[in-house]
């Protein structure tokens, strides 16, 4: 039997959050954490969590699993159960709405701040803008971000300054556009990032790299942005 301990909080009922224990029979299968949550929700329909694609591409079910942020749908029990215990909490650092559901407004606000869209004001050609495979390769490891917030909510700098520090996810996306040969707003983008907080509050802790469920490396991208900013200032 697996002992699953889940963070519960319903603002209409509970004065404060608490951990609720469930006994769960895995029948010897190496299920995904999301499978466990789904089955527990049949027992207790009031248990609340986000989920959608259940294959690790939509980024809905980022939760803190036995102390480490990850996607419930692609984290097998064999990777996260210690002894017979599984502990599931909401992603840390952002306000909890209910149970495992957090308020991600601050996270999205930082994403929007970096102007996450192509800027190129020259009139587009009749076909696509050409881009060589080498130029395109620079976007690999950047565009795959699924905005699950596992990285930013694992980042102490983001916990401390979520209003001012863009956070690993937003910065990864900032670099995705800086690195795109088709984008022409490099100067403008850098100018928006050169205060002491947006980028430079990254202290290279690298929690983001450790938890990213897509295996991306925000710290490296942040390093690239920092170098661009420094080259620009010098």
């Amino acid at each position: 039997m697996l002992n699953v301990s889940i963070y519960r909080y319903n603002p209409e009922v509970d004065a404060e959050p608490f951990m609720q224990d469930f006994e769960f029979d895995t029948q010897g299968k190496d299920l995904m954490v999301l499978d466990v949550l789904e089955k527990l929700k049949i027992q207790d329909p009031s248990l609340v969590f986000r989920r959608s694609c259940r294959e690790g591409v939509c980024g809905s079910d980022g939760v803190n699993i036995s102390g480490k942020n990850g996607l419930a749908c692609i984290t097998p029990l064999s990777e996260c159960v210690r002894g017979d215990k599984l502990v599931i909490r909401p992603l840390p650092g952002l306000p909890v709405i209910r149970d495992l559901v957090i308020d991600m407004s601050q996270f999205y606000a930082q994403y929007e701040k970096i102007q996450p869209y192509m800027i190129n004001n020259s009139p587009p050609p009749a076909i696509e803008r050409l881009q060589s495979p080498e130029e395109r390769k620079k976007l690999d490891g950047l565009y795959e971000c699924i905005l699950c917030a596992c990285c930013s909510t694992a980042c102490p700098s983001f916990w401390w300054n979520p209003e001012k520090f863009i956070g690993p996810s937003g910065l990864l996306q900032a670099y995705r556009f800086l690195a795109d040969s088709r984008d022409t707003a490099t100067e403008e983008r850098l100018a928006n990032l050169d205060d002491p907080f947006s980028v430079f509050r990254c202290h290279g802790i690298m929690n983001c790299v450790q938890v990213c469920p897509k295996g991306l490396n925000p710290t490296k991208a942040i390093g690239h942005i920092r170098n661009m900013l420094i080259r620009n200032a010098a």
Binding site: D195, P196, F197, A233, A234
Partner: peptide, 10 residues
């Protein structure tokens, strides 16, 4: 004194 890059360089 007030930009990120200069702080970093200093």
């Amino acid at each position: 004194t007030f930009t990120g890059p200069s702080n970093w360089i200093i």
